[in-house]
Design a protein around this nucleic acid. Structure first.
Length: 525
RNA sequence: GGCGGCGUACCCAAGUGGUCCAAGGGAACGGUUUGCAAAACCGUCAUUCGCGGGUUCGAAUCCCGCCGCCGCCUCCA
């Protein structure tokens, strides 16, 4: 079983084979930090995070680079308009770098909440001006770029494959150009590598062509190659950046080195809300901070309901992963509510399973559960996640359960290996949850429960990145003790048939977010 | 105008030639359990995959036409 992924560059599903196994280099276009992150960022980065997690679960030694764009991203096309960050800085009366700092922190805060793992290297464009200047210099030297009045443009005619990724030709671009042609450019499709800084432009650096700032595309070419090499395995990004951003990246990088750039391109699709494109200008942009924390209904400019209340980050993550990363995804209040129910079903199943394991282990402290023996990850060659997951399933002592767990692990791995089919993987996870609940109900032996728990945590937690706010029984001993006290009092009241008091305790705990469940073996929450 | 994609049950959403007369979740309904709930469990819920043709022994899956929706082509994850 090997990973197959859809390569946007070849438009085919290919078997993944790293350039220098077991090492895998991945670059994903990061955000331009001029505002808080919205649902679109969540879709993109949750998708790529899950892809990263799966590569790692497969045993690859992944080096993950994701940039922070903090200069050069203009409000219009690549060669006109203002820098987005400068615009925001002026609006807030701050230095551009202060804007960058605050939104960068905001971005990581939201991503952390979503369970998106931080990149191994998070290079900032402003920290790599030298590298960008150097690459531009090489491009001029090799005849792929030209300088005009202190700005440098890439000569599109010098790179024949330009347009391959996005399926366009230079002629088409010219014909369909809606942008006013910049007089400095030789060809309308040429794009800026370096822009002359006009007087008063705050973000400026010295260069061989005078004071200026880098174009938006050059940072990704320069930084990805700096940290991953001239040719590397995977480049990811949003669909909307195929053209011009990624097309330009390829042109710059390949012309500068004369060697192939990224071997595989992964593009995730965009999201809509209530069936409409989401955008600042449309007034229906939903910020993640609003989703996670809003205490009141969120409406768009016209007053239509976007969200009736807050949803915790894991619910957003769950919803995103129930569809495929290359499919568009439509957010809506109803969809999130449905995802929430489903997500909590998984959470509760895992929670019950963990409790059962703890309870069993307490009863038989001497019996060391075989399932807790770790599975050595270096026992498998890289590139086969299925074998690793199956090994966890194989820890179950009972033959019947072992077979069931192995089937779940296999289904999950097959799904993920098919171009990261998280929707099908989640389906397998739901089946595993059902198995887990059955084990708990059937009072299965400790080893079985522990194996099921280990597998479920691996799939739900490590691979899919689900982490619930109140998951795993809580680590706050005082809080749990107090709740248990109330539960005991309530059960005494119930035994005395004082249901009014019992219900009152239950209702007031529910109001505090603690839901009691009366089962045959006692009350849980 | 050019490029790309989508249309699967009440809703979300997998599946891209046979093992699919179609996963999984949500909602709904019936049942078990319960003091009542909640949760859990069992069952029901697309003879059908936008529409019409065609290819094939066989199609949701391939081809043609039509209808509808969306994205990109200017910044956007």
């Amino acid at each position: 079983m090997a990973l197959k992924l859809y390569n946007s560059l070849t438009r085919e599903r290919e078997t993944f084979q790293p350039l220098n196994p077991p090492r895998v280099g991945v670059y994903v276009c990061g955000p331009t930090v001029y505002g808080h992150s919205h649902l679109g960022h969540a879709k993109s980065y949750v998708s790529f995070d899950t892809i990263l997690r799966w590569l790692r679960a497969s045993g690859w030694d992944v080096n993950y680079v994701q940039n922070i764009t903090d200069v050069g991203h203009l409000t219009d096309d690549a060669d006109a308009g203002e820098d987005k960050i400068i615009v925001e800085a002026r609006r807030r009366g701050l230095h551009p770098m202060a804007v960058v700092e605050s939104f960068m922190r905001s971005y990581y805060e939201d991503m952390d909440a979503l369970g998106v793992l931080r990149p191994d290297i998070a290079p900032r464009a402003t920290g790599h001006i030298t590298e960008q200047i150097e690459q531009i210099r090489v491009l001029i030297e090799r005849g792929h770029a030209y300088e005009v009045n202190g700005s440098v443009y890439f000569d599109v005619s010098s790179y024949a494959p330009y347009g391959r990724l996005s399926g366009r030709t230079v002629e088409e671009l010219e014909a369909g150009a809606r942008v006013a042609v910049n007089e400095e450019k030789r060809h309308p499709a040429d794009f800026a590598l370096w822009k002359r800084a006009e007087a008063g432009h705050i973000m400026r650096w010295p260069s061989p062509w005078g004071a200026g700032f880098p174009g938006w595309h050059i940072e990704c070419s320069a930084m990805s190659q700096k940290y991953l090499g001239e040719t590397f395995d995977i480049h990811g990004g949003g669909n909307e950046n195929k053209f011009p951003h990624h097309e330009c990246e390829i042109a710059q990088a390949e012309c500068a080195t004369g060697r192939p750039f990224a071997r595989v391109w992964l593009h995730n699709n965009m999201c809509t809300i209530n069936g409409q494109k989401m955008g600042k200008s449309l007034g229906n942009s939903v910020l993640l901070k609003d989703v996670f924390h809003t205490g009141r209904p969120l409406r768009d400019r016209e007053g239509a309901l976007l969200l009736e209340r807050a949803f915790e980050p894991v619910v957003v993550r769950h919803f995103i992963l129930t569809s495929h990363y290359r499919q568009p995804l439509d957010f809506s209040n109803d969809a999130l509510r449905a995802a929430e129910s489903g997500s909590y079903k998984l959470r509760d199943a895992l929670h019950e399973l963990s409790r059962a394991v703890v309870a069993k282990a307490r009863l038989a402290p001497s019996a060391s559960p075989p399932a807790l023996a770790p599975v050595a990850s270096d026992a498998f060659p890289p590139g086969n996640a299925g074998a690793r997951l199956a090994a966890i399933a194989a820890l179950a002592p009972s033959e019947g359960l072992r077979a069931t767990l192995e089937r779940s692990a296999e289904r999950f791995a097959e799904a993920m290996d098919e171009d990261f089919n998280t929707a099908a993987a989640i389906a397998a996870l739901f089946d595993l949850a059902r198995t887990a609940t059955e084990c708990v109900k059937a009072d299965a032996p400790l080893g079985d429960l522990a194996a099921a728990e280990l597998l479920m945590r691996r799939l739900a937690g490590d691979v899919l990145g689900f982490s619930w706010r109140a998951a795993g029984g809580g680590d706050d001993g005082t809080r749990d003790g107090l709740i248990q006290l109330l539960v005991d009092l309530r059960n005494e009241a119930r035994q005395a048939r004082n249901f009014a008091l019992g219900d009152q305790i239950r209702n007031r705990l529910a109001a505090l977010g603690v839901q009691l469940k009366d089962g045959p073996s006692g009350t849980t929450w």
